[in-house]
Design a protein around this nucleic acid. Structure first.
Length: 417
DNA sequence: GACACGAGTGAGGAA
DNA sequence: TTCCTCACTCGTGT
């Protein structure tokens, strides 16, 4: 998505991020600090933060982790909604076409990298769709697709099709799904005394592929939300433009082999295009697998002495992003955590050895992850992790990128290096 | 073969 | 380091 305003990664912001660690900022200094160096092929020297800053980063990591008690409460509430919802979805006689859905949990909570509070949940409801064909939309770098039935089928739900009886319509699927969610909430909670109010959100992003269910307390304040995303599950091979590079396969090969080779299409349209009947590709399931099985060796994170700090690094990045967005909500409205995640995956691919991510090196590793993100901004190029030719920064305005680059370089000079 | 259920296991927070 | 809880996988029964 395009940035409509210049980004402001000012010194004050990062100061606030660091000062929230309850310590004063101590400048990074190449004179007083050593260098983080990698023993592997990806070796690039990164300036290492001094011990005080390292300590602050370690404390920050501890403070942003989810609390067990909150997780228990949230799991109670969320599963108390999701499980009956999915059962109802599968059994609803009026909408038999939802019978085959499977639950695919995605997003930061289920990737175990959610920070601060367990208040946002993402669940994809995958509809298997055999015998469909897809063609990519021009000028969208392999991110968006049109979906059609390969042959007419009486079993395929007609409410999901356009008048041509062949085009699978994201607008219709989402409309039907949202209607279903609203009806479920109305019927399931009718007459029951529940401490929370549930409603299908109307406030959020109009182009969201989800039916967002908000859970409100007695004062009508939102305490958590669930994004329910209907998705087409395509069992066919991935589109030509999508792939996992050889370096990724080598790195993940020892720990994990993505088991679910299918891919998903969700009802999200490209920004600035008139055609609404377009699907966006999603690899959330693979992203989750990478996040969970991130190690180069099979034993990574399985024992106390094989722990790594990869997940803590993305948690720190997310907390930095959240702090920035809190201070500049309008200017940073288009800055999304997916950029951090994508850049992080590229860093993991380059620094693939578990020895690069020792827990006591957390500060150094975080700087490395942040540095890599800055480099992507500098080059105005952040390739989608699964679609190498798709630049996620493509739609950003040049002047905004230039402005951002200047700020980041100033940032590096003043605070980090 | 599809589905539901439950035991076993891993991840991560708490003490 | 151990214990506990949640989420997930996989085997078993229907």
């Amino acid at each position: 998505p395009p940035f409509t305003e210049g980004l402001c990664f000012g010194k004050a912001l990062v100061l606030r991020f660091l000062s929230s660690l309850k310590c004063s900022l101590v400048e990074y200094s190449t004179a007083s600090a050593g260098k983080c160096e990698d023993s592997g092929a990806a070796a690039t020297a990164h300036t290492m933060p001094n011990p005080v800053t390292s300590h602050r980063i370690e404390e920050r990591v501890k403070s942003i982790r989810l609390k067990q008690k909150e997780i228990s409460n949230a799991a109670d509430i969320i599963n108390g909604f999701i499980d009956p919802f999915i059962s109802h979805l599968k059994e609803c006689p009026e909408r038999p076409y939802f019978k085959g859905v499977t639950k695919v949990t995605t997003g930061s909570y289920y990737e175990l990298v959610k920070i601060f509070h367990p208040n946002e949940f993402d669940v994809m409801l995958a509809l298997p769709v055999p015998n469909i064909g897809y063609t990519d939309v021009e000028d969208c770098d392999g991110l968006f697709y049109k979906v059609t039935l390969q042959r007419k089928s009486r079993s395929f739900p007609t409410p999901f099709l356009l008048e041509d009886e062949s085009t699978v319509s994201p607008v219709n699927v989402l409309k039907e799904f949202r209607k279903f969610v609203s009806q479920f909430i109305a019927s399931h909670y009718k007459g029951k005394q529940v401490p929370l109010t549930l409603l299908v959100s109307r406030k959020k992003d109009r182009n969201s592929p989800a039916a967002t269910v908000e859970l409100l307390d007695e004062k009508n304040s939102e305490i958590m939300s669930i994004d329910l995303v209907p998705a087409l599950e395509i069992l066919a091979p991935w589109p030509k433009s999508c792939k996992l590079g050889e370096d990724v396969k080598k790195w993940l090969g020892k720990k994990s082999k993505p088991r679910n080779k299918s891919f998903y299409l969700v009802a999200k349209q490209p920004p600035g295009k008139d055609d609404k009947e377009v699907w966006r590709i999603s690899f959330s399931h693979i992203e989750k697998e990478i996040m969970m099985d991130h190690g180069n060796t099979k034993t990574c994170c399985e024992f106390y002495d094989t722990k790594c700090c990869r997940k803590d690094c993305i948690r720190l990045m997310k907390s930095l992003f959240e702090d920035l967005k809190k201070d500049y909500p309008r200017q940073l409205s288009h800055l999304c955590s997916y950029y951090a995640k994508t850049s992080f995956f590229h860093t993991l691919t380059q620094w693939n050895e578990d020895s690069n991510w020792k827990p006591h090196d957390i500060a150094c590793c975080f700087i490395r992850v942040l540095d890599d993100f800055i480099r992507h901004v500098k080059n105005a190029n952040l390739p989608h992790f699964f679609i190498p030719d798709c630049n996620l920064f493509h739609s950003l305005l040049r002047k905004d990128l230039k402005f951002l680059l200047e700020l980041l370089e100033e940032q590096k000079k003043k605070d980090f290096f």
